[in-house]
Computed example of a mutant assay.
Amino acid sequence: MQPAAYDLESRHPGWPARLGPLRVAAGDLAIRPIRLRDAGDWSRIRLRDQEHLEPWEPTGPGPWRDRNSFWSWPPQWTALRSLARRGQCLPFTIMVDGEFAGQITIGNVIRASLRSAWVGYWVSSSMVKGGVATGAVALVVDHAFAVAGLHRIEATVRPENAPSIKVLTKAGFRQEGLFRRYLDVAGDWRDHYSYAVTAEETGPGLVARLVATGRAEYR
């Protein structure tokens, strides 16, 4: 028996949840909900990786060090958890071999007849080219379709961000178009490509595709 539409809208399907593990080149990949005690690892990696992350992230108020300090995590965690409990996002931490490796979020969840959202992610510079981002996207998108009840996931990426474009295409996303001067990134309005995937396009699932092509292994 299918739940009433009101019941589905009033809960927060798909969060919290634990996904994986999945074996990728970098190690054993797992996804779990964000935690308040992630503050230390989150801040340490983001401060270290400023040059790696800042060119691709939306412009924020104040200097990078202030926005990514230990004490800036608790209010972010509180806001994300509140949105998750209202069913408006699914915020996760990326773990590799039991260690904090980044974040991935299904955001701006819209239900009713649209059932869409976007996916955003960042990964530690030490995990680049290890299959971590691609595996994380596949795990979370499969979860969003199968458990969270969504139908379409989109992602936007700057044309200059070749590594992130590779992540999306390897995970099964297709390019839909170009948004001109779409987002304020690194202090200026930047063009972004729009990528998307729908539930019907995933077949047996994005993770299954990675496994079938030798990019990952089930654990």
Rank of each mutant, 00 (worst) to 15 (best):
P58K: 10
P16Q: 01
E51N: 13
D66L: 12
G62W: 03
L29G: 01
G60F: 13
I45S: 00
T59H: 06
A5R: 11
G40E: 15
T59I: 05
L36Q: 07
E54F: 11
D38S: 03
P55L: 09
E54V: 12
R32Y: 01
W42C: 02
H52R: 08
A5W: 10
P3Q: 10
P13L: 08
V24F: 10
A17R: 04
D41E: 13
E9I: 06
D7H: 10
G62K: 04
R46I: 02
P55E: 13
P13I: 03
D49F: 04
R65P: 00
A30P: 01
W64A: 04
T59E: 04
A25G: 07
D41H: 11
Q50E: 15
E9D: 14
P13E: 05
I45D: 02
D49G: 04
E9W: 01
L19I: 11
I45K: 02
G27Y: 09
G14S: 07
R48A: 14
V24W: 04
H12M: 09
P16L: 05
A30K: 00
S10C: 12
R37T: 14
P55N: 13
A26V: 00
L8G: 01
A25W: 00
P58T: 12
R32W: 01
L53M: 15
D7S: 14
E57P: 02
A17L: 02
Y6N: 10
I34G: 02
T59Q: 06
E54N: 14
E57A: 09
S43I: 07
L8W: 14
M1G: 15
V24H: 02
H12V: 03
A5H: 12
D38V: 07
R11S: 13
E54T: 10
S10K: 05
I45F: 02
Q2P: 13
A26W: 03
E9R: 12
S43L: 09
M1A: 15
A26Q: 00
A5C: 08
R44M: 11
V24Y: 04
W56V: 08
I34Q: 06
P3N: 06
W64H: 08
L47E: 07
W56F: 15
G40V: 05
A17P: 01
Y6M: 08
P13Y: 06
H52K: 05
E57C: 09
P58F: 09
W15V: 09
G27I: 06
D66K: 07
L47D: 00
E9S: 11
L29Q: 01
D28H: 13
Y6E: 15
Y6D: 14
L8D: 06
R35M: 13
L8M: 13
D66S: 13
P16S: 10
H12Q: 15
A5G: 11
R46S: 04
P58A: 11
G14R: 00
W42K: 03
P61K: 05
E57Q: 14
E54I: 10
W64F: 08
Y6R: 14
P16H: 05
H12Y: 11
R32D: 08
G62M: 02
R46Q: 08
R37C: 10
D41I: 00
R46T: 03
D66G: 12
I31G: 04
L22K: 01
G60Q: 15
P61A: 11
A25C: 03
